[in-house]
Design a protein around this nucleic acid. Structure first.
Length: 215
DNA sequence: GTGAAGATTAACT
DNA sequence: GTTAATCTTCACA
């Protein structure tokens, strides 16, 4: 396992989003280690993207971290009850972020279940453990206290599995839950591993299938 | 200071 | 398919 470098994150958010598919998100917490393969992400670019919290370079207390160096976490509370976990992308002064929307659980399944308040680990519950941005934060033990933590040096990090190099089929689709973003809601900035059962929304047009890429 | 909306989820009908 | 839960953030006064 090789931890992703600052350079990996210091690119346009949609490049980081596309390339982060198939990587492993790891949290080494006092309660134990949990990890999962990233199977669904979305890119946000504050300079041009109406769906971004930092649209029009809007610099507030909340978005401040996006204007710093890449590879740090951007985390916020949504609907008063769920956390969303993002990775800061792009260069300093260029606000970009990648929302991690779903994981395929890899390690620490029992701990994930406990954090999610699930009793038994059926096949169904395994799929539903991390198939949504709020769910994966809960399962991984991520909360707003992790805002601004460094993914290059920390108990929370993303690594590349240097072992088996599977080929993954990537699809680029419109993003979820951003109808307020005007014409930018049509941008194909949601990237998924097309044949994964662990993504949050299974339905997507075959038109969105792009070429297979190496992990 | 006030108010409206939200990158969601689970539990309903 | 519809709706409640729940509270931070941001725009505006």
């Amino acid at each position: 396992m090789k931890i992703l470098t600052r350079e990996f994150y210091s690119r346009h958010s949609w490049e980081v989003a596309r390339d982060i598919l198939g990587k492993i998100l790891v949290h080494e917490s006092p309660d134990g280690v949990t990890s999962g393969k990233i199977v669904e992400v979305e890119a946000y670019d504050g300079t041009i993207d109406k769906a971004s919290h930092a649209y029009n370079n809007l610099r507030t207390n909340r978005t401040e971290i996006q204007f710093g160096p890449a590879g740090f976490t951007y985390i916020y509370l949504i609907y008063g009850m769920h956390c969303c976990f993002n990775v800061v992308a792009d260069e300093i002064e260029a606000p970009g972020a990648v929302l991690i929307r779903a994981l395929e659980p890899v390690d620490g399944l029992e701990l994930m279940c406990a954090r999610r308040g699930l009793k038994n680990l059926s096949h169904k519950s395994m799929i539903e453990l991390c198939n949504g941005p709020g769910k994966l934060c809960s399962a991984m033990g991520i909360n707003t206290n992790f805002y601004g933590s460094d993914l290059v040096n920390g108990p929370l990090y993303i690594a590349e599995d240097t072992w088996g190099q599977d080929t993954i089929e990537v699809a680029a689709t419109p993003r979820i839950g951003i109808d307020h973003a005007g014409e930018d809601k049509h941008l194909l900035w949601r990237f998924i591993i097309a044949n994964s059962p662990y993504i949050s929304r299974m339905k997507f047009s075959k038109d969105y299938l792009s070429s297979s890429t190496d992990k």
